[in-house]
Nucleic acid binder design. Structure first.
Lengths: 220, 220
DNA sequence: TAGATTGTTAATCGATTAACAATC
DNA sequence: TAGATTGTTAATCGATTAACAATC
């Protein structure tokens, strides 16, 4: 059994993977390099990578392909989970169109909504069906992952239906604290939290900027 | 000058605000209650709230309206920042349609793209213009906030254009580490990080579940 | 070899949690 | 009053950073 990973480490690991995938074009890479590119302490990078079980070579660093593979194994990016998405609003449609999710182990195989206009259509190649069919289909197809993109006030009842259908993990985009049994795993994606952080940080940033001597305040 | 807030605290504060806004329907609320609803330690809640400068009453808790106000002031939710959004793909369109951002201080006043099909149209009431006009307009309108929803390979050049236009903070949805001057504030929204976390956690969850005695493993 | 980088242990830092007096 | 809750200080926990020997 793999040991528990600290949450901050788990947040950084995918960034390393993407860096290797998209940016690094060389056989080996050192923690120093990774750290410079992602603005992280090299020692921290090394500690994080340790969790994947990979070992490097002094003076050389890590073999890029091996490291990429180790990260994929550790993050389970190579095996795809089928998922249902409920709520074909603008966000739901955007997620259906984001094919790159498959590279990260998520394949949305069906969408659901209550809107009769939407039921029966295909969005980005994914069929949309009536919400009432969802629990039965989830059980029949053995789907264990659900994505919730409905308005806040419907989110809890959708979660209940998912659980009824045997779904075990929920990616929740609705701005609500879902109440679920202990054995159900919920991952919240709360854009409003991000936005409030941004709002606060921008205001502080501007305040600091404005309190500075008027050196180069106007760029124009 | 307000003191620096720990990042974890800053992530929790918006959740308190939303709870007060949507769920709590009573004059006063205690940290115990908030903690129970959000599954947080009451002491932690109290410490977090302390940063807003509000004081409560023993035995009673905090006055809900005052607390809500204190959170809004602290997070700067009451003053709206105008923003430009670049990249009218499915995610960009979804964000344009998400009117609730205004409650969190963000108002997207224009969208930009290079696609001539999109330029000149309105999406959810927001006009779409040609990307080349963006820097000039940003400077003329004094817009200081930019949202990037273009594909990864265009993100850096869009960021450069934003900075050229005098934009000071960037909400970045493209899966790239942007390179910007020190005085520009970047807030990354990397769904792939979330997804990889989810992927890892779900796999662990399933592993733990499967290693349990076969008590009630099949719910059906 | 010389020197950069790994692997690993120790020191520091900061956030969470516990404890408890003050108070409404 | 009695007791729950605040405000605040101390203890714990865990993550980050520093130090350094091992090594290619």
């Amino acid at each position: 059994m793999e040991q528990a990973v600290p949450a901050p480490t788990l947040r950084r690991l995918p960034r390393y993977h993407r860096l290797l995938e998209d940016v690094i074009d060389q056989p080996c890479v050192s923690c120093t390099q990774i750290g410079r590119l992602l603005k992280l302490d090299p020692t921290q990078v090394r500690k994080d990578l340790e969790y994947t079980g990979i070992t490097g070579k002094p003076r050389v660093g890590y073999e890029v392909n091996a490291l990429k593979q180790a990260l994929e194994d550790f993050l389970h990016l190579n095996k795809t989970d089928e998922a249902f998405l409920v709520g074909i609003g603008s966000l739901g449609q955007a997620l259906l169109g984001y094919t790159r999710f498959q590279e990260y182990g998520l394949q949305i195989v069906a969408g659901f909504d209550v809107d009769v206009e939407k039921v029966g259509t295909d969005i980005h190649g994914v069929p949309v069906r009536d919400l009432s069919e969802m629990p039965g289909l989830a059980r029949r197809m053995g789907v264990r992952l659900g994505v919730i993109t409905v308005p806040a006030n419907y989110a809890q009842s959708v979660a209940d239906m998912m659980i009824e259908g045997g779904i075990l993990a929920i990616w929740n985009f609705a701005p609500v604290q879902l109440v679920v049994p202990d054995d159900i795993f919920v991952h919240d994606e709360h854009l409003y939290v991000s936005l409030a952080q941004l709002s606060r940080r921008l205001a502080q940033h501007l305040a600091r900027r404005d309190s500075l001597p008027v050196l180069e305040k106007t760029r124009a």
